[in-house]
Design a protein around this nucleic acid. Structure first.
Lengths: 339, 339
DNA sequence: GATAATTACGCCATCGATTGCGTTAAATTT
DNA sequence: AAATTTAACGCAATCGATGGCGTAATTATC
């Protein structure tokens, strides 16, 4: 009925707590505990359904086997997949994760950081909302291993996991150019967002390399939403200088743009070509499966885990590093050659 | 540099740990501690960036302010949304969640249950893989509050959060019938899955109420996957007794079926009508937005949280209850009247 | 038969925060 | 001035697990 602790078992078998602890941690041989005693302890522990108290252990060994993961929106496939991979990798190492969803709310991000620190987590994977240092440097001050995900913060020494947004976008736009497209639209996210800027830089570079000039009204920053993608696409397609191809800066924008294209009575890829950033399950399920730039989420997750685990070794003083991963171009069926 | 504890502050201010604890918990007036002392302590705590150690607290007060959430697949929008709502509701109450992803692996489910118990979580929300009792009853034995989600287990007393699968499906099928459809296919999930059986029961009842007989080859159980939906739809549409409408038992099946329909050169809703179980973001983004049965995920999450919190009050001996929530019929544009 | 070595454990401090029960000194009352 | 109250704190146990150090008892060695 009541919950068994080491003491409970110790009392029954008439040994000390230490002995019980040693036996249950499979160290009894090192401490010269007889097989008979060990057997008695083990069997009693089973009888009583003994389960160790991790809180007590944490206190003693100053390690919680817990990692905090702070994401912006867990319902975004990008993050839910990340969480899945991180959880899986850490599970095999004996760690659990506390998930924190900020919902793009900076106060909540701050709150979560404080809570995670008060829980003495062994590490934090953070996909920060802002490029502000204040709330994040407290993590560093406490010397808690930190992996910054998907966002580079200027002048802040830390371990970063990034993808090569610029090169990835270039590849996508190059593909459109090689198909003969000249009127290529960039539908972007928030204009202050660093990833968006890098993707835009890739777009610009691809165009200039092909000696195409930037058409101003073909660049539409906004937000990473379905709505923005939809509005940008419909507006342009109904203008008197309609484009022939789109690049959409994330998974939600691309869906919005696709819907917009179809609502204009046009077909993909027959009438309009489109490439998106981010791969996701439903990208393959659209009438014309989307050609996309895939972020190597599994690799990103494994790298983040790897960094945290290695930083837990306090003798590890290697300088912080940025791991920049390559994107992958996935050719499906949403672009077409034109003349 | 080093981390401040109560003792650290106590040493500096030259008071006892108790006094520091009382001040930092805003109880100093109850214990007659002078404002001057309190001020000194508070300011020192700020200076040293004192953050309390929750592990020590847990040990002392036998409460961890942690809830375990075990889901089958966090990348499924159904679960990622659930997690989002649960996280948000618990955050305001001062609780964190440890997320456990089983990936439909029973061993992992077991492992996670054990880990959560060893962490002395204050409650568990579990969406179990099987209807087996063994691994789950250990939670009950430990007297840990448990909310069983989306799966009723026979003969197992517990608090359940369910939706009315049968009534929801009936509503969907009734809608198809009222539009004049008589050849209605049921594409289901795993035939042993309880939810699938209940949904199928709703399908059968709707047909029989309308005096339509069950056509055997119009019922295709299988799995909750895109592939199954696709194959079922294409196979039937190419047969010489093609149906005019589909009911798909979850979000992935419905996407597969839609793709299958389109790959057969048919249009939704012009040529074929379809209704799906589960609402999800991309349902609105298809060429023809899907008519679906929505599960009240937010309500389900809030109910689960509510149950757990109330069960934490150990004087609460109200018998276990099943909260059966109603689904919502969301009419979009994937069905059409025929004659 | 005395000494050394090994076996088989136990004691107790520790991790950090909380809390019931004191205790001391000052202030107030009579 | 003696007695009582109140203000302002401290002591030490507690939560559960761990591990360094110590020790009694048995066995082995010379």
């Amino acid at each position: 009925m009541t919950i068994a602790t080491l003491q409970t078992i110790a009392n029954i078998v008439k040994v000390s707590r230490s002995t019980v602890s040693r036996v249950l941690n499979n160290k009894w041989e090192d401490f010269g505990i007889s097989q008979a005693t060990a057997d008695k302890i083990i069997s009693k522990a089973k009888d009583l359904h003994y389960i160790k108290n991790e809180a007590a252990l944490s206190l003693r060994v100053k390690k919680t086997f817990t990692i905090g993961v702070i994401v912006k929106d867990i319902t975004d496939p990008f993050y839910s997949q990340l969480v899945k991979f991180v959880e899986s990798a850490l599970y095999t190492k004996g760690y659990n994760i506390i998930i924190c969803n900020t919902g793009y709310d900076l106060d909540k991000e701050n709150g979560h950081i404080n809570i995670l620190l008060s829980r003495w987590v062994d590490g934090i994977i953070l996909s920060p909302i802002q490029k502000s240092i204040e709330n994040i440097s407290i993590i560093k001050d406490r010397n808690v291993p930190l992996a910054l995900f998907d966002c580079k913060i200027d002048k802040f020494e830390a371990d970063y996991i990034l993808v090569d947004n610029k090169a990835g976008t270039m590849e996508a736009v190059n593909h459109l150019i090689s198909q003969g497209h000249k009127k290529i639209v960039y539908i972007g996210g928030n204009s202050s967002d660093l990833n968006n800027r890098l993707r835009y830089a890739g777009y610009k570079k691809a165009l200039s390399k092909a000696s195409l000039s930037i058409t101003e009204h073909y660049v539409i920053h906004g937000s990473y939403t379905f709505k923005h993608g939809y509005e940008a696409a419909t507006e342009l397609l109904r203008s008197n200088d309609a484009p022939t191809a789109f690049f959409a800066a994330n998974n939600r924008i691309v869906l919005g743009a696709c819907k917009g294209i179809m609502d204009c009575g046009l077909q993909i890829p027959e009438d309009v070509s489109i490439v998106g950033f981010d791969d996701f399950e439903t990208a393959t399920m659209l009438p014309s499966p989307l050609t996309v730039i895939r972020q190597p989420l599994r690799d990103m997750a494994l790298n983040a885990v790897d960094i945290l685990l290695s930083r837990m070794d306090k003798t590890n003083n290697t300088p912080c590093m940025t791991r920049m991963l390559k994107t992958e171009f996935i050719l499906r069926n949403s672009t077409r050659k034109i003349n």
